[in-house]
Design a protein around this nucleic acid. Structure first.
Length: 339
RNA sequence: AGGCGCGUAGCUCAAUUUGGCAGAGCUCUGGUCUCCAAAACCAGUGGUUGUCGGUUCGAGUCCGGCCGCGCCUGCCA
């Protein structure tokens, strides 16, 4: 690499006055209702207000998924899902993390300014140690460093996250501060943008909707599947008889109705007064979900049957980011004393 | 690299000591009950015993190789 003064990474190819936002999403496969309401909807909205970069983080996934065929499949499914739900390559940059290997190099460089104790304190690390005690690999520990690299390699200033993710972003900010303190101002401290994304509970009504737990509502599934999943949802456990009044505040079915119609207050009222029963409310919810996602489902099925279309979008996204990533690395090399 | 230990259902484990039908709890599925779901009760599904070979009439169990995980002692850029 030529020895030169750091080029200005401000000269983005996506020349734009909009602040740059970065967000990573795990390649967990086809998205479910919780993914969409909790994150994807916001991604779609934010792509019009920010210079938005969305990254399918397959390097991160390697800390828990060790089946190459499965990972590749899930990465493509995630990409197709995001495009089907409205991410528009004309308005945002969507790419796969491992298509920009500069992320991992920067992670190594950032690792040298990051105390081990910061990482050992990370709640997710402790949690994973409990969840997969036979596979506590180093990637799990260094995960937040790679996360920081993901963000700052594009000098993104805005990171849309749920409030539960605030701690992770704080660690990224600390790593950035540690780097800037040692080598001079280089990276902007990324700011969390808290979205009002709800934590969507699964069909069990207790735990967060999650593919690994198996409590999902699969929005791209066949209508019969969605009906079956909605009908199996846990409702208000105190409402036993049809004539018992319901409590919409604790009924997950009622909560989900918030997202599928302006008339949810009326639906809640029906539950409270036992004018309607749980079956009525579930059937209505199922049909609304099916109708709402029908166009996206069609797009998804189209995209997944033509993987070349998806791959093309991903390749273009990675190519667009290449100059940015290389410029940042060149600047960092110069500051750290690398050739 | 060497020493010790471990590997059995999706999960937690039993059966290994003394070779003799691979089992239990939870999860899951179905049924009863409820407007549904949950809870409760009843029933059922679920296994290449990490893997390859050997000994034996017979191996989850004994022997050897390999793979994986943990702990310990080293070596090294």
């Amino acid at each position: 690499m030529a020895l030169e003064l750091a080029p200005s990474p401000a000269l983005a190819p996506l020349a734009s006055e909009r602040p740059r936002a970065f967000s990573g999403i795990q390649p967990s496969g086809i998205v479910h209702l919780g993914n969409d309401l909790g994150a994807v909807r916001n991604y779609v909205r934010l792509q019009y207000d920010y210079d938005a970069i969305y990254c399918i983080v397959d390097y991160h996934a390697l800390t828990t998924t060790h089946d190459g065929t499965l990972l590749r499949e899930r990465t493509r499914e995630m990409a197709a899902s995001l495009l089907a739900l409205g991410l528009d390559p004309e308005h945002c940059t969507l790419f796969v993390q491992s298509d920009r290997p500069e992320h991992t190099e920067l992670a190594w460089l950032l690792a040298t300014v990051t105390p081990v104790s910061w990482l050992e304190r990370t709640p997710t690390y402790k949690e994973k140690k409990l969840n997969q005690p036979d596979d506590v690999n180093h990637g799990l520990l260094t995960y937040p460093v790679l996360q920081a690299a993901d963000i700052v390699i594009y000098k993104a200033t805005v990171v849309p996250v749920g409030r539960d993710q605030a701690a992770h972003l704080e660690l990224s900010r600390e790593i950035v501060r540690a780097f800037n303190a040692r080598y001079g101002p280089t990276f902007p401290e990324p700011q969390a943008v808290f979205t009002d994304a709800p934590v969507v509970l699964g069909t069990d009504g207790v735990r967060k909707m999650s593919k690994s737990i198996g409590n999902t509502i699969d929005i791209f599934g066949a209508p019969e599947l969605i009906r079956k999943q909605v009908m199996s949802m846990v409702t208000d456990t105190k409402r036993i008889l049809r004539t018992d009044p319901g409590r919409p505040a604790v009924c997950n079915v009622c909560q989900l109705h918030r997202h599928f119609g302006a008339d949810y207050e009326e639906i809640w009222d029906g539950e409270r007064t036992a004018r309607t029963g749980c079956v009525d409310t579930k059937k209505l919810l199922a049909e609304r979900i099916i109708a709402y996602y029908a166009p996206a489902r069609e797009r998804y099925l189209e995209l997944i049957s033509k993987p070349a279309m998806v791959d093309e979008v991903l390749a273009a996204g990675a190519a667009r980011l290449k100059p940015l990533a290389e410029a940042t690395l060149a600047e960092v090399h110069a500051k750290m004393g690398l050739r």
